[in-house]
Computed example of a mutant assay.
Amino acid sequence: MRAPLRPSGPETWAVPELSAHLVLRGAGALIAPLRAVLRDWSVVPVQGTPPGPGIAIRHREGAYERCSPWTEAPRRFRDPVDAVCDLVVDLVHAYVAARPERLCLHAAAVETASGILLIPSTYRSGKSTLATALAARGARLFSDDVAPLGPAGEVEALGMLPRLRLPLPAGLGAAAQALTAAHPGPTSARYRYLALDAAGLAPRGTRRPVAAIVTLERAEGAAPALMEGDADHALQHLLLRNFARGPLPSRIFLRLRRLAAAVPCYRLRYGEAAEGAALLAERFAPLAPREVLDRAG
């Protein structure tokens, strides 16, 4: 791995809550979109060398080049929003590394009246579009991609804006299309962030218990169906999606097994996000927790 550049002077920025700092060489254009995406976090200029891992980004030859403890080779992006999208991955790794008691899943998480629907799934599986379609139906987002789990299995909101790939799929549904249009965040040719307020996106640090685990079986043209699952199937998905390595493997297994055994598990088969969201909304109505419904009304 390449060592990040050493920070110095006003080029150094800290994200204290994420236990990381940035060294920007001619890359100050990243600060505005980064602050927008990290809605509930501080991005502040600092002097000297802050604690925590350093992430170095420099702008050269028309691109933003990043080195960090988590990159095997430099990562390059021409668009500042694309560069921020990729940078957030490193910041999440820094967050997890500084909190060894946390597990962290590649998962969407939406809040219902009874708790969190936890949707573990792999990269580019459609969980962000499904989460957005659920948000359009009144659910409050905790995560569209990364869901930290506390010691008791509760989900913690990171307060980072959700992100969708462009172009938006037609199957997202009219309500979700309208939601994305009404809450534009930083956008590139590849991605669009949604600048949701606290009623649509849980503030950082909000914690809720898991009400159910939903695994995805997405296939074009599939007849939508929400089926009862089993704890072993859900556990397999949780184990595959966990990327925190702080606890011993045996403790990771035991914690996730307890979670899978403690809540109902479902398998969602669907083709389009709007169809899948409709099934989940019917099963878990009302989607929105009471305090969100009160504010919306």
Score class of each variant (00 low, 15 high):
Ser143Asp: 01
Ala14Phe: 03
Tyr95Asp: 00
Asp82Met: 10
Leu105Cys: 01
Arg255Phe: 05
Val44Ser: 00
Met227Thr: 14
Leu166Lys: 13
Asp294Arg: 15
Leu259Ser: 10
Ala288Lys: 09
Val44Ile: 13
Ala170Tyr: 04
Pro151Cys: 03
Ile213Tyr: 03
Arg218Gln: 12
Arg163Gln: 09
His183Arg: 14
Gly159Pro: 04
Leu158Ile: 01
Arg78Tyr: 07
Val84Ser: 08
Arg163Ala: 12
Arg66Trp: 07
Ala223Leu: 15
Ala107Val: 12
Gly171Gln: 10
Ala260Gly: 05
Asp79His: 15
Leu248Asp: 11
Leu254Glu: 14
Asp197Arg: 06
Leu38Arg: 05
Ile116Glu: 01
Pro7Val: 13
Ala3Val: 13
Phe253Ile: 13
Ala174Asn: 11
Gly205Ile: 05
Ser250Tyr: 09
Ala178His: 04
Glu156Ala: 11
Leu216Trp: 03
Tyr193Glu: 10
Thr180Glu: 12
Leu239Asp: 12
Ala20Ile: 02
Leu196Val: 12
Ser143Gln: 05
Asp79Glu: 14
Leu238His: 14
Pro289Met: 09
Trp41Phe: 07
Glu154Met: 00
Ala133Asp: 02
Ala109His: 10
Leu256Ile: 04
Asp86Met: 07
Leu196His: 09
Leu87Arg: 07
Asp232Leu: 13
Thr215Phe: 06
Arg190Met: 08
Ala178Leu: 07
Val81Gly: 01
Pro4Asn: 08
Thr122Ile: 13
Arg255Gly: 09
Ala178Glu: 08
Val37Gly: 01
Val43Phe: 04
Arg66Tyr: 03
Ile57Ser: 03
His183Gly: 03
Gln47Tyr: 09
Ala176Leu: 14
Ala107Met: 09
Glu72Tyr: 09
Ala174Thr: 14
Tyr270Pro: 04
Pro167Tyr: 11
Gly221Lys: 13
Tyr266Phe: 15
Glu17Met: 00
Pro16Ile: 10
Arg140Gly: 04
Arg75Trp: 07
Ala222Met: 10
Asp82Tyr: 11
Thr49Ile: 08
Cys85Leu: 12
Glu11Tyr: 14
Pro74Arg: 08
Val81Pro: 00
Gly297Ile: 03
Ala198Pro: 02
Ala20Gln: 01
His233Arg: 15
Glu101Thr: 11
Ala260Asp: 04
Pro224Lys: 10
Pro224Val: 15
Leu149Thr: 02
Ala277Met: 12
Ala260Lys: 03
Tyr266Ile: 09
Arg204Tyr: 10
Gly297Tyr: 08
Ala181Met: 06
Val155Thr: 01
Ala273Tyr: 10
Cys85Asn: 11
Gly200Asp: 05
Asp144Pro: 00
His93Tyr: 11
Leu279Ser: 02
Pro184Cys: 07
Gly200Asn: 09
Val155His: 01
Val44Phe: 04
Ser188Cys: 08
Pro33Leu: 13
Arg76His: 15
Met227Arg: 14
Leu30Cys: 05
Trp70Ile: 07
Ala63Tyr: 05
Ala281Pro: 00
Leu196Ser: 06
Thr112Ser: 14
Asp294Ile: 15
Pro151Glu: 09
Glu72Phe: 14
Asp197Ile: 08
